[in-house]
Amino acid sequence: MTRSGLKLSGVSAAYRDTPVLHHLDLEVNQGELLVVLGPSGAGKSTLLRVVAGLQAATTGRVLIGGRDVTALRPGRRNVSMVFQSYALFPHLTALDNITFGLEVRDMPRKAARERAAAAAATVGCAHLLDRRPGQLSGGERQRVALARALVREPDLFLLDEPLSNLDLELRTETRGELKALHARLGVTTVHVTHDQTEALVLADRLAVLRDGRLEQLGTPDEIWRTPATVFVARFVGSPAMNLLPADGPLTPDGAPAARPPGHRIGFRPEAVRLGDVGTPAAVERVDVVGEDAYAYLRLAGDGPVITARVPSASRPFPGEPVRAAVRWADVHVFDGDGRRVTGA
């Protein structure tokens, strides 16, 4: 069995008097890249701060590499954290920023600089070492911050939305670099984000957080294909999963004759088929995104609106009557509490 790189056992935390994390149990395997995904206010950054020792847990224990660090100061946890703002000293060069943590721990200057140069080469910023943060782009500052984290040779990396300040093209490029870097180094990593694409691309496993509670933990494929709750089903996916009452206007092909009251069915936009059979609908809006189009359909006259993903070349047009059908095999069923019903 893989030794745990990080384990949270019954961890709670509060901001002033407001509870943020609620008896959270979470285990990250050694060498794993776990992405924590959730909306603003879910408790993602608080989780990182508790692990790093920057904020005390009100209950529970934090273990890193099997060692209980709950009562240890941040400097004794051997954790490196990359902040959303990068937190570089503006008056220091990139090299001095990278070596700062080593030198305050009394590492000889020559040895610190040799290690810094190696870390900078690993993340592709060796040519920037004589520049100050104000002379660097956002992507370059992010690389320096990663080198500063890497140079400590930590047991655990904590990344707090490190890509959020980058433009779309650079964010996509840097995502790939982060994934490759983790594959080379194999350091246990917890990466926090609200960006579902980033989470699905990077994660070995994905933890979906809501209001300080764990909604679901699994591989990206498991989260996508078998969402445990309505929240996960709606939060992961763009456009979001369609949700309808189980006894509503659309009856999927092959659905059982009787469906429990209070249950809801969910299906992704790509599961909707437009053709000559199915539930009557009217096209309210169509959004074209390259080869794909997203048609927003009003079911059965004044019924609910669902989204269908169709090829843009064969898309319907607003006002056009269509028929929408879904296979029962593509449907998820959720009970009255919003939990997925297995075997439905």
Rank of each mutant, 00 (worst) to 15 (best):
L150E: 04
L21Q: 15
V28R: 08
H182N: 07
D17Y: 10
S40R: 01
V333T: 06
T46P: 11
A329H: 13
D106G: 15
A233W: 01
P269F: 10
A52T: 02
D276V: 13
D167I: 08
S80L: 02
D211W: 06
F235Q: 00
A329D: 13
L170E: 05
A258D: 12
H191G: 05
R77F: 00
L206F: 06
A313T: 03
S45L: 14
H194S: 03
P133A: 09
E291P: 11
A119M: 15
T18E: 14
R16Q: 15
V326N: 07
F317H: 10
A258V: 12
S312V: 09
R61A: 07
A111K: 12
R132A: 12
M1S: 15
L88K: 00
C125W: 11
T122R: 10
R268N: 10
E320Y: 01
R210M: 04
E215Y: 01
T18N: 13
G66K: 03
G139I: 06
A183S: 15
H91W: 14
R148Q: 00
Q84G: 03
H182F: 06
A246E: 06
V62F: 06
P19M: 13
T251D: 09
A14F: 13
H191Q: 10
R61P: 08
G254L: 10
R175E: 01
A228G: 11
A112H: 05
L88N: 00
D25P: 14
L214Y: 08
L274G: 07
K179Q: 06
K110G: 06
D253Q: 09
D335N: 08
R184H: 03
L243H: 02
L146P: 09
A233K: 01
T172Y: 12
V230A: 00
P260W: 09
R3P: 11
N97A: 09
V333A: 05
V62I: 05
L47M: 14
L159T: 03
A324Q: 04
G218T: 01
P162C: 07
H23P: 14
V20Y: 08
H191T: 05
D167Y: 10
A255T: 12
D195I: 03
L200F: 00
H22F: 11
F334W: 05
G266L: 07
L202G: 11
V187E: 08
R105W: 00
A52L: 02
V36M: 06
R327Q: 10
L37E: 02
A281V: 02
E177T: 04
H91A: 13
I64Y: 06
T46A: 13
P162M: 05
S137C: 03
M1K: 15
G31C: 02
M1D: 15
R315P: 11
G218H: 02
D287H: 10
A203V: 08
G124F: 04
L34V: 12
M81N: 04
P260E: 08
P19C: 12
P90Q: 03
L6Q: 13
L92D: 14
M1F: 15
E153P: 11
V104H: 11
V144S: 02
V277M: 07
L170H: 09
S9T: 13
V232Q: 02
V288Y: 11
P311E: 05
L26R: 13
L297M: 04
L299H: 11
G218I: 01
V79Y: 04
L37H: 02
R132K: 14
T172N: 14
